[in-house]
Design a protein around this nucleic acid. Structure first.
Lengths: 250, 250
DNA sequence: CGGGGTCATTGATGCAAATCAATGACCCCG
DNA sequence: CGGGGTCATTGATTTGCATCAATGACCCCG
């Protein structure tokens, strides 16, 4: 079984259980990150059951995983690549409400219909659960339900933070917060590098931050000119964290 | 026991159980709104238990119910009045992430700390639950947990809709969407009037929509000049719903 | 190597909303 | 009734970001 638990690296040293579906994890009790994923102390028989109802799937870039307001038939755990989640207006204006990285779940709200559209930004690997099976699996496991609920609460919290960003921050603050956030998220899944990967296009970043592609580009080059960041292929190196935090802090 | 169930009017005709705490409701099975509140088919003994752990409380306008990032000690159900939920930046810029109306819950994410600050806009009546007692009450009721989770999913959905509004809509579209939304919410709690109440200040509306007070005022007067709305004390009368929907539709 | 495609950068210009600045409309209370 | 407080409206002006318009940097593939 392939390992896709985002916690594997941040909980280094603890006994980690194989986990491609993201629902189980190791026994690292004091790891703060733990709460941010849906990981319960599932026992072996439960894990085997979970395994039976899951299936791995790979999709190329630009593939739509599911579309806004269609019937929610699946729950996904992203195991590799990046997925964009967005809402659109009839005239084509688009707001990306989030990027899903390895370890993130899609459709966990367990609503009848998807509230957003999910598209692969890069080539993506997911672990798919049929919704009925997932619901059945989850329904008699209160501890797991609790975890799911905590997880939803965390997502709501992130959404509210993003509302603050969209409504009240300047372009530079938006970019700074975005870069710091991506760095933190990649660090959490074990990509600890001086360079923060930015696999999504400038248009994606713009649609996530409520800006235009030109403003994203200009702001990044200005930050680069001021030696705050260094723009590299498919990413950005953060040079002056203090200066970035000044702009991007919550 | 005072009745504060937001569903009482929209489910007119069904046998409605008294409910000041918002967690129980009638047996109106086909009511669409049902899913939007946390209402489970709780039995009488459960209701009595719920009653024991709840306490009614009234707070005057401008009172803070709880503050962002403090320890979450309570769960609230608003039974009367309006509450604003917001996040702030260090320099004072504020983003209101939602208004809680009668029937709405605060702190249902059940996280350790509150993610936002909650302040009474008007005089407010709430039903308070101590968090530990509420958790204990909820923990062995999987059906209730499911409801709570559905509720959280709905809240997330609303937040994402607001992100689209904040990031991609014009001032006029924001105002139009806000007015239609308030109308729908007041209709749901039984305030079916040609006039939509707006108990919050222009500053509150501005901070909710990512605008300034002046832009809110100007946009409203323009809509009034164009006979789309009529501005009345403490509210707005919607005259041309079609025209509003044109601007505010999702 | 060269042409066409996609995406990012850069510059010139425009405009929607912010900012600055009065003025107006109520209140409340002495 | 009148003065001070708060909040909303309206007007003049500025500005941050969007829009419009080229140009540049890669790719891929023939």
């Amino acid at each position: 079984m392939r390992i896709a638990d985002p916690l594997q690296d941040s909980c280094a040293g603890a006994a980690t259980r194989d986990c491609r579906h993201g629902l189980a994890t190791n026994g690292c009790e004091d790891c703060k990150v733990r709460l941010f994923s849906v990981c319960a102390a599932l026992e072996v028989p439960e894990l085997e059951e979970l395994d039976r109802i899951s299936q791995a799937r790979e999709v190329p870039a630009r593939t739509t995983l599911f579309e806004q307001s269609t019937l929610a038939g699946s729950v996904f755990n992203v195991t590799d690549g990046v997925v964009r989640l967005y809402k659109s207006l009839p005239d084509g204006r688009r707001q990306i409400v989030g990027f899903a990285l390895p370890g993130d779940f899609l459709g966990l709200a367990l609503q009848d219909r998807y509230g957003v559209t999910a598209e692969a930004v890069t080539a993506v690997a997911v672990c798919r659960f049929a919704r009925p099976a997932f619901l059945a699996y989850v329904d008699d496991k209160p501890h797991l339900l609790r975890r799911l609920h905590e997880f939803a609460g965390h997502e709501l919290s992130l959404a509210q933070e993003q509302m603050l960003l969209l409504g009240r921050r300047t372009a530079e603050e938006k970019i700074a917060a975005f870069l710091l956030n991506m760095q933190a998220r990649y660090a959490r899944i074990g990509t600890v590098s001086v360079t923060v990967p930015l696999p999504m296009s400038r248009q994606d970043i713009a649609d996530y931050l409520g800006l235009t592609i030109e403003t994203v580009s200009r702001t990044l080059t200005r930050l680069a000119r001021e030696k705050v960041v260094l723009i590299v292929p498919d990413g950005v190196r953060l040079l002056d964290l203090e200066r970035l935090k000044l702009a991007g802090a919550s």
